[in-house]
Amino acid sequence: MIELWNVSKTYEAGNKALRNVSMTIEDGEFVFIIGRSGSGKSTLLKMLLKEVEPTSGKIVVNDMNLSKMPRGFIPKYRRKLGMVFQDFRLLKDRNVYENVAFAQRVIGASTRSIRESVPAMLKMVGLSSKYKFFPQQLSGGEQQRVAIARALINRPEILLADEPTGNLDGHNSMEIMKLLNEVNKLGTTVIVVTHSQEIVDRMKKRVIVMDRGTIISDEKKGGYTYEN
């Protein structure tokens, strides 16, 4: 469970990115966060990753208060989260297999576990046949699948996706969303930040709308109500 209690964030430059945001996301939920550019969506995800600290307020994830978390525990905490970015952020000098295996290697997983789980994960995202390809030999949609495979390989409880379809065409976007929906059905909490009206309207999931650092609407089975 993710809980935000009156969370505010003011960046060093004086930019108020979040103002008094409170919300709760239950385990296994699928949530869209939408809103105008600069409304604080990415800031919110970064806080959940403990990449950015709130200026005030309290964030509790799975009963852990993030601001009271010892530094040494942060890596362990992050392993419970998976993160997908708009620009994929794959390692260009490594092939598909290595990009996914990378996430296991850097947390010190055994070779045996890597050999078992990476092919299975690649199968799930539909890239079994391209495991030897390098990122630049793949389409945008395929690259994003690799990134999702990497985010999921350590079996996170929560998957955070910041505009995962921002660089993809309509068809590829829907494919990625289907994939995220499957992941969600397997029990992972999924939070997706997006600007795509089509996606939000089609999926009929919970939608949180943000504007200038506050939540202005939060609907179960919502649509893309926000006017750009």
């Binding site: 905490y77 992050r78 850097v106």
Partner: peptide, 17 residues
């Protein structure tokens, strides 16, 4: 730099990085 950033977010320890 890029790789280290990703490692951090994945949950690699500083020691590993």
């Amino acid at each position: 730099k890029n790789e280290n950033q990703i490692m951090k977010l994945i949950g690699a320890t500083n020691y590993m990085i």
